[in-house]
Design a protein around this nucleic acid. Sequence first.
DNA 1: CGGTATCCGACCCGATACTG
DNA 2: CAGTATCGGGTCGGATACCG
Lengths: 130, 130
Amino acid sequence: MKVKKYYESVAPYGREQCAEIICPIQFLMDIIGSKWSVQILRELFRGDMRTHELIEALPGISTKTLTIRLRELEKYGLLIRTVYPEIPPHVEYSLTAKGRELKPVILAMKQVGEQWLHQESCICALELSG
Amino acid sequence: MKVKKYYESVAPYGREQCAEIICPIQFLMDIIGSKWSVQILRELFRGDMRTHELIEALPGISTKTLTIRLRELEKYGLLIRTVYPEIPPHVEYSLTAKGRELKPVILAMKQVGEQWLHQESCICALELSG
DNA sequence: CGGTATCCGACCCGATACTG
DNA sequence: CAGTATCGGGTCGGATACCG
């Protein structure tokens, strides 16, 4: 009886391989649409990073979720995991060429996201009335 | 006691308003990252659509999910819902100017998505060994 | 340091039946 | 035709403790 490693049991829920019709936009969303995925990629665009650097750069992420996301992105060929056989362990993550193809997507998202963020009236803003 | 309408009870799970630090990329993902959202927007970029036209254009979506996604996108100001007081009911959805600002994002996603889709070896392909 | 195992609440979303 | 109510399975992902 094959036992799945725990991070294999988690996959983007919308993904349906080889459906009759595949929308390339949804196809991409299924790859990068999980929580934290784009933020991990965003960090790696700044340069190669070690695990604890990612954890520090992404406040709130758990080691479990980080590992799952990294394995997914590695499986999709977007990043490479390099292990240096040292003690204590030393693991480095870096974007592949394929991963860097996401740059225009992430740039476009950044541009629109910033624009909308600045327009948005903050829900937490103090109400002066009353 | 206020009773939430059922579609108000559903919101993108990653959204945290007014966090100390907000990544504009994640901010955008929280708006368009739910299942079906980008596909709905993709259809509306082709022109205004009625509810049943969207259902036909998005095979697999339920009326419930469609309604929830449409209300979300309307709440974010990305589309407008127009009701024509007729019998039978006639409702039309159209992108707002803000919604159309997503065009470069969706185009970039489409481009990369198509490229990767064509590279991908199909998991369902027959295995010739054995 | 990096990763794993386990538990568990939250919620996403599909199916179905029903209303005006 | 468009939308609502309700149910329920699946899984997402956070918290925590532990290992080599």
